[in-house]
């Protein structure tokens, strides 16, 4: 039985080393100038250093270039892609077709992962981007288990599924936190507060807390719960899903490392010793639950949810 890749998000080069030791097979890194909602900020020098760590531990490195680009950054994409090709990173993650066009021009052998967060919702679209050059599709988080399995059945590209962490619900180009402070007349707070960590929107009716932050790409609002399906991996492993992602955005490095260790064990057991997985999975879940930050409940995302329209 094929073992899915365990893909994680380091916050720094040093953290990447810990994650490699914790059993990660691959990492997503990058900088917010080109990538969306990263756990850490990796400059070009950090990417060079990360490649050393990667070679030492046999870990694959995927660099995020999945922002929505406006004209002002289009011309510099080729320089960044060339740099990534020189570093021999394992793949570039893209959503905007401008990146695909640039890679075709300057690094045609570079592997591409298609990830728009919300729009990989059917197998045809995954294969479409496959025909355009993508090797992998990262599925939308709003799909249920049945849809994921059916996509995998028809997919001509690798399929990546997020199994843990928070997901993005909303991205605006507007400076929504800054605008709120300006509206309140708190001009002193605008610059200082809008990039502050730990901000959240409280939804009284649902008693939910949605993390919110601003960066170069605008304002992002995140899910109120962290997905955790460490105890529900059987079906996707049997279906041959290619990559399981733990997204650590807005989490502490130690937390990401601990979660990675648990998923490493869960995947290994689920593939090699299914019975033992069945016995141990509740414990693995409980161990993660025990280290959840306050106000971050675990749930199963959309895996077992009915969505209407």
């Amino acid at each position: 039985m094929k073992k899915p890749e365990l893909l994680v998000t380091p916050t720094s080069v040093a953290h990447m080393e810990q994650l490699a030791q914790a059993g990660a097979n691959a990492v997503v890194i990058g900088e917010q100038r080109y990538g969306l909602r990263l756990a850490g900020e990796f400059s070009r020098q950090h990417i060079v250093d990360a490649m050393h760590v990667a070679r030492k531990h046999g870990v694959r490195v995927y660099v995020a270039m999945n922002a929505l680009f406006h004209n002002d950054k289009v011309d510099e994409l080729s320089d960044y892609v060339r740099f990534l090709a020189e570093q021999q990173v394992d793949a570039i993650i893209f959503g905007d077709p401008a990146v695909l066009m640039t890679v075709r021009e300057v690094a045609p052998h570079m592997k591409l992962h298609w990830n728009t967060e919300t729009t990989a919702t059917n197998w045809y679209a995954c294969n479409y981007w496959g025909r355009k050059g993508a090797k992998r599709a990262v599925l939308a988080r709003e799909l249920n288990m049945e849809e994921i399995i059916e996509i995998k059945k028809h997919a001509e590209v690798e399929i990546e599924v997020q199994v843990h962490g928070m997901t993005c619900m909303f991205q605006s180009k507007r400076s929504l936190i800054g605008n709120y402070f300006e509206y309140q007349g708190k001009f002193m707070e605008v610059q200082q507060m809008k990039y502050t960590k730990g901000l959240f929107l409280y939804d009284k009716e649902r008693d939910n807390r949605y993390p919110i932050f601003e960066d170069e790409n605008g304002t992002h609002i995140m899910s109120p719960n962290d997905i955790c399906i460490i105890d529900e991996l059987e079906e996707m492993i049997d279906a041959g899903i290619d990559s399981f992602k733990i997204d650590g955005v807005l989490h502490e490095p130690e937390y990401i490392t601990e979660v990675t260790k648990r998923y490493r064990r869960a995947i290994d057991l689920c593939v090699e010793h299914r019975e033992q997985y069945e016995e141990e999975k509740a414990k693995l879940f409980a161990e993660i639950e025990a280290i959840q930050p306050q106000h971050r409940p675990l749930d199963t995302g959309f895996f077992f949810k009915e969505t209407v329209y």
Binding site: L68, S172, I221, T307
Partner: peptide
């Protein structure tokens, strides 16, 4: 207010 297609608040 979001980039169209990139908002799943309703979901």
């Amino acid at each position: 207010i979001a980039y169209s297609g990139r908002c799943v608040l309703s979901n």
